[in-house]
Design a protein around this nucleic acid. Sequence first.
DNA 1: GTCTATATTCCGATAGAC
DNA 2: GTCTATCGGAATATAGAC
Lengths: 186, 186
Amino acid sequence: MSGTREKIIELGENLIRTKGYNAFSYQDISTELGIKNAAVHYYFPSKENLGTSIVKTNIQRFEEMTENMKSLGFDEWQQLDAFVKIYVKSHREQKLCIVGSLGPDYNTLSETTRAELVRMTDIILNWLTGLLTSGKAKQVFSFGEEPRVKANRIITNLMASLLLSRIIEKFDFKAVYQSVTEELRS
Amino acid sequence: MSGTREKIIELGENLIRTKGYNAFSYQDISTELGIKNAAVHYYFPSKENLGTSIVKTNIQRFEEMTENMKSLGFDEWQQLDAFVKIYVKSHREQKLCIVGSLGPDYNTLSETTRAELVRMTDIILNWLTGLLTSGKAKQVFSFGEEPRVKANRIITNLMASLLLSRIIEKFDFKAVYQSVTEELRS
DNA sequence: GTCTATATTCCGATAGAC
DNA sequence: GTCTATCGGAATATAGAC
């Protein structure tokens, strides 16, 4: 147990979210860790292997967060705030989310990595749809559309705002996510 | 005048929007055109050169469209419909938009390509903000937020919906863009 | 678990012939 | 305007020593 495997996954994730999947190399990781290219291959024989593990780790992290909120009895607003905070943190660190960075490379990914990316996206969209459905039923959220459509609109707002923040220096990310949440108040 | 230069730009654009900037090569283009790698370098000495030209072409196309609508006296609804149709066409062709595909690779692009990408994004956001401002003033569009924020939310909805359509087979793209426009009716 | 060394492949790019 | 030929470099990946 050296923790090197975990460090590789963390570095790989950061590289995907800053440079993109097809722009980072095993050298980027090995240099940063002060080890050699071959040592990274010991943990992850192929790049597709590493990519898949990174997405799997993200799925696990998301599911732990949502299950944790459930067991702590978070109400709908608390859960939504926690979700939005993921993107606020990404923005602060000048990173995209995993789905937003791997999505454009989808056609170049291996079947196994694609499958995990699809699974991750499904899990997030289904969770958010469920949250909105529940919040609407309890009348703590107010919106007219179908919960599924509202979920799609909220997540695309957040994802692509990270992207535009990277391109446009003065992009007002805060105004977008505040608008997203304020709109849900009755 | 062989038209080869224009074909290279068109092919390059399609490759960026399907595979991503860092995943396509001069070989992809030369093979498709039935010429050799070196012939592509004759038109575009470097890849950054080609990338920059592709973005410039897109800016020109967008500006021609908006100026054309202006001279034809399109009203706000007609202009919005024409804008949304760009994304509907992209969706039909299973492509992302240029900004959505080059954005994640921003940190790997050359200074000149970055500058054009920034310019293109600015032009689109400013145009859409202007359209929403005008439409709100004339009360043909109805929305509560600042036009700039509304523009940001609409364009992120459209951009990232193309992305999610690529990942999630059953993603309801149509429901999103219909929701976007219907929301603007009084 | 990490290393050296190396195989292979591909990419961007250039020189110079036609 | 397109070709052949080729270079230098980088990337993924493997074999085998320590």
